[in-house]
Amino acid sequence: MLAKPQFPTMPLLFGEASAVPISGLIVTFQSSVAEHSNTIAVLRKIPEIDIGESAGSKLAIVIDSETKRRDQEIWDTVQQLPGVIDLAVAMVAFDEDHQAN
């Protein structure tokens, strides 16, 4: 059975399901993404993060972590990185099978 993708508007849903989430997020920087190479280097160092497209001051990332706790940690870390002014959720998918196994 395939997990249903969901489209929440707030990060609240992280705590709601017991499954481990895969989330597509949008990081908004103070200025153009290109000017924040240091921060992006930090993002690259986090193994759970995949970096995607960027446009203007926005950058798409996907977080795929083992535990919810780790997911929350990453969320908090990214929010506090220099230059980041907003972190928004585009999509969260819960892989229920993974949890069951």
């Binding site: 997990a3 993708p5 895969i22 597509g24 949008i26 585009a90 999509m91 892989d95 099978d97």
Partner: peptide, 27 residues
């Protein structure tokens, strides 16, 4: 089994985030 599904979900999440970045719909 799992890895395939997860990679599918990851790409879906990436598409969703990417499209919002390029279309700017969050603003």
């Amino acid at each position: 089994m799992d890895s395939e599904r997860r990679s599918f979900l990851k790409s879906a999440a990436m598409v969703a985030a990417g499209s919002m970045v390029t279309s700017g719909t969050s603003l």
